[in-house]
Design a protein around this nucleic acid. Sequence first.
DNA 1: AATGAATGAGGGTTCATTCAT
DNA 2: TATGAATGAACCCTCATTCAT
Lengths: 206, 206, 206, 206
Amino acid sequence: MGDVPGGPISAKSYRSRREERRRQEILLQAAYVLAEQGYHGVTLEAIASRLEMTKGSLYYYYPDKQQILYLVLKQGAQAALDYINRQVGEMVSPTDKLGCWVDAHIRFICQEMPFSVTLLQTDAILENVAYEEVQKLLAQYNKVVDQILENGINAGVFTVVPIRATRNFILGALNWIPRWYTDQDEMTLTKLISVYRTHVLKLVGQ
Amino acid sequence: MGDVPGGPISAKSYRSRREERRRQEILLQAAYVLAEQGYHGVTLEAIASRLEMTKGSLYYYYPDKQQILYLVLKQGAQAALDYINRQVGEMVSPTDKLGCWVDAHIRFICQEMPFSVTLLQTDAILENVAYEEVQKLLAQYNKVVDQILENGINAGVFTVVPIRATRNFILGALNWIPRWYTDQDEMTLTKLISVYRTHVLKLVGQ
Amino acid sequence: MGDVPGGPISAKSYRSRREERRRQEILLQAAYVLAEQGYHGVTLEAIASRLEMTKGSLYYYYPDKQQILYLVLKQGAQAALDYINRQVGEMVSPTDKLGCWVDAHIRFICQEMPFSVTLLQTDAILENVAYEEVQKLLAQYNKVVDQILENGINAGVFTVVPIRATRNFILGALNWIPRWYTDQDEMTLTKLISVYRTHVLKLVGQ
Amino acid sequence: MGDVPGGPISAKSYRSRREERRRQEILLQAAYVLAEQGYHGVTLEAIASRLEMTKGSLYYYYPDKQQILYLVLKQGAQAALDYINRQVGEMVSPTDKLGCWVDAHIRFICQEMPFSVTLLQTDAILENVAYEEVQKLLAQYNKVVDQILENGINAGVFTVVPIRATRNFILGALNWIPRWYTDQDEMTLTKLISVYRTHVLKLVGQ
DNA sequence: AATGAATGAGGGTTCATTCAT
DNA sequence: TATGAATGAACCCTCATTCAT
């Protein structure tokens, strides 16, 4: 990361790039396991076997299991935040922004599945002190949505109160999707998004 | 069981009633642990310590951990089904029924908290073959909601399609509440229900 | 129940006779379990359930499990000793005595099954210090057989040495029967005994 | 396994050979415990402590206790079969074969003691479905003995019927040896074998 | 005389973690 | 870098034992 193109690549930097890639790969597979088995169901053995390495080897990259899970969750929250900021940022009107966010959020939790687990965690795990940072990111995420709603209200196009309950209402509706919707569903994802977007806009008064 | 009202209570029935109470208490505490730690996070030790007994003693009442969790989930699903049937059954118009259901559902998951865990568990767990019966009950629950929507549509008062996606949209919105709403929230539960009911009704075209 | 007509029977003696019967019944059922499951496979639960009582009740009759097993083993050894003494005692010639013993021994281990377990125990359990007395009885049993052989030798009708090895040879042959012979076998027990008696007599030179 | 004699030993094969040795050592100690405590008396703790390791470590080598016991029993049956086939195979006359088998069988159960436990276990244990294969090997073993007897009968040198009962008679006599004969016995093993061989041959009419 | 209820030690098993190589 | 090997804590479960009733 950050090597100047054209410059000589030292063994050190080569190694660290390779290592960095490996570290990332570990988080990815850990995210898969986390999504499938839930927080308490994650085992290092499961992660390692997906990487075709032994669980002992994981300790070369990370100090312990907790750290791995922490990074997965943090990275998931960061990715979600970046993703919607990028998508929503291009929109201008509150209506477009909100519709765009619905689209982006659903795509994120349905398509970036492993890391979206952060947004969906059931267990009261995020309350763990060690995960403060994750919570801060999620709070930021919420704030982005709140901002969209607020702008719409101020602009007189949305009529909905109170903001927090409404945001959570919508968030719950969207985050519930992975519980019932699968790739094999007769309804396409595009169709689903269209339905959900309509619902959300109707909700805020559009 | 079989006690004549007002009559003397035999030692036998007294004992079995006491045992029944204990068995129920175990399920209750198990439900708390399940709600707090998630399915894979449940330990017999945790359940036992809440009851101030040793984990070995649990085996006097139930054959194994799986059975305990199964009964918690089944009881939760049954309780939810009974509860909304009782509440909603008294309503006549689709609008009243839907509003009443929103109220009942929220009250159930916020006030009967431990057992409402069944409604909130991830499918991955319920897909377990051992839990078929629980799934059937949950499917029945969904059907009750679908029926309300369908009746409203047929009566021309609701305008919303498709039913399944809409039902899940609403269900997700409601089930998300325990993730963010606590007893200490500045918003009262009554106020919350009022907001959510309004949202749901607006959603279906009222 | 069982009161001797004529004499008054105090409550005490009534109780103790009934109790004695119960104690004996416990040993009998324990013997069955011991025969079926082996020493380490015995559980108080298994014994109690055969008696349709709870395992806690066993402690009214015996101080612990070890004591029950000890008594089963001792009683088995004593019964075997009594049985062959009674049977063999009536015979006169060494040949008749030996033949009679073979018959009696086989019948004992095949028909008095539960208590014959003492003679057959596999595990190195009898070496347990607590079971010294059982070992003494078994040694007496062996001595009876040795005596038969010795008498035959002295009388010039048996030609076999050394006595101990020969006795153990025969004992092993007989004690092995329950390992392969069952009630459903095509060969009748009578036929089996006849074959074995012939073998034994041939062995000692008859 | 597959190492070229005299060639270099790769780290891989070195490791796997070491592991193989360890796995075998576990079976050996398990066999000792099995022989001493009986099937139901075996504990992983007992096996592990003989190896100066913790019981958890056993799971690195074998998936569970049942598998360890299965392998001990199977290996014992296979070893016995191989051993007598090798020994007896070199003999020609039925008399020599039978005498040789007696010698080999006794040596096997007295000198290969731990693994000979298979031959001495109660049927009740081997009837376990998981142990079908062990039973097949033991049946093969019996067939080898039966064949020797049959050949002798057909050749007119043995006069003994019926075969199965006779084989079991002899087998019992031999298998009983470990119950009473120890290394410290005043009679040498060689002397014992000589006595038993004579007995067996006398039995079949020689 | 017997039982319901509970306990605690110990057994089988899993798994995060360590460490020499 | 990575692994083989081992550990020990914690988990589920069984069972002999206790004791108030």
